[in-house]
Amino acid sequence: MFEARLAQSAILKKVLEAVKDLLSEATFECSDSGIMVQAMDNAHVSLVSLNLRSDGFDKFRCDRNLSMGMNITTMTKILRCASSEDTVTLRAWDNPDNIIFIFESPSKEKLAEYEMKLINMDQEHLGIPETMYSCVVKMPSAEFARICKDLSQFGEAITIACSKEGVKFSAAGDYGNANIKLAQTAEVDKEEEAVCIDMQEPVKLTFACRYLNSFVKATPLCAQVKLSMSADVPLVCEYSIGEIGHIRYYLAPKIDD
């Protein structure tokens, strides 16, 4: 049997909103250690890696490892039926055809059950090696979302250039160009407002706005985002999910032809 309970469905609601633009379906790998998802978008340009540790759940039981293929569109619809304060329980039996989502109101007066059919999926796992990145930028997630949105008006791609002076985001198109520079913050009252740059070597990479604008749907999950970059390798854009885990997005850079 598999059963995982979160005291508040808000986290799971936000996770679904953060992946639904990129993934229409995905396999949820459930084991003693928690729930993991690794899936590429249809174009194989980006990858979502989600990790929810079992100790972050209020209750977690997984008698045997399960791979459950889920339709993300349907799952998003189901999670939208939960209030943020509702308790959410995911339940499946061994060799399941279905997964059950149970939402219980804080007063326990309302109990809703939604059953979703599982789908058979071909697993395509990418092996991602541990990488030391030339630049790691930590910055407010809302600021990153704002920059992606603002620069998307100027072109289809955003160039991120990181040096010891700071990080520069730029976009250019037929009607003009724009650039936004962020310096490392000297002193901040609140850690979540800091811009922190850890640079070994300067990096300049270009990425499609479309995907970055999908990644920033994770902004409600965490006040800070971590961008890891090295020359000629995919960007890693990471958001922590409270004390329970993280979501990482990988995005292949654009190259000059």
Binding site: V45, I128, D257
Partner: peptide, 14 residues
């Protein structure tokens, strides 16, 4: 115009 890379050019299928 820069060309979009594919993720599978960087990581291998496991």
């Amino acid at each position: 115009t820069p060309v979009q890379n594919d993720l599978e050019e960087f990581y291998t299928l496991a």
